[in-house]
């Protein structure tokens, strides 16, 4: 993807990625962790949140709002590409923790759907069913 994004960091296991964004709310450490949740097929869960500067705990309910939403999401997408190039994987599961964030992710994915579909099959979960992700979601 040819989008603006932050530099990101990982150790040589490439399960945890970190990057920093800065803006009106200050410097915030973003953490992405890929956790294996299935072996056959191989399934990973994508977890994403802000690390609290004081407690070191992860919080995905924080709304950092550093006016860089698209850059943050592009950086997360970068880690997805990097991760799947390094690890065998059949499914990647990701879920927003609130209707607002889910909608945000839907909008972003819709904007990138043509590029995503070149390499991936994308599904959304609605009304207890999986269906192919379409722009009108």
């Amino acid at each position: 993807m040819n989008l603006e994004h932050y530099s990101c960091f990982s150790d040589n296991n490439f399960y945890t990625y970190e990057f920093f964004n800065e803006g009106p709310k200050g410097r915030i450490k973003k953490v992405i962790r890929y956790t294996k949740i299935g072996n056959n097929p191989v399934i990973y869960n994508l977890g994403f949140g802000d690390e609290d500067n004081i407690t070191g705990k992860i919080d995905d309910e924080a709304i950092s709002n550093n006016n860089d939403r698209s850059i943050v999401l592009a950086t997360v997408a970068d880690t997805i590409n990097d991760f799947i190039n390094r690890h065998p994987i059949d499914f990647l599961f990701a879920k927003g923790n609130s209707p607002v964030k889910t909608r945000l992710y839907q909008i972003y994915i819709s904007s990138m759907i043509d590029e995503i579909k070149r390499d991936f099959k994308l599904y959304g979960f609605r009304n207890r069913n999986w269906s192919k992700f379409t722009k009108k979601c």
């Binding site: 040819n2 994004h5 530099s7 960091f9 990982s10 150790d11 490439f14 990625y17 920093f20 800065e22």
Partner: peptide, 19 residues
Amino acid sequence: TSTKIGHNPVTVVPYIKSY
């Protein structure tokens, strides 16, 4: 923080917490 456009290689560093 600097941003980039284009391919984004990940920088490997030794101090990443596992989580």
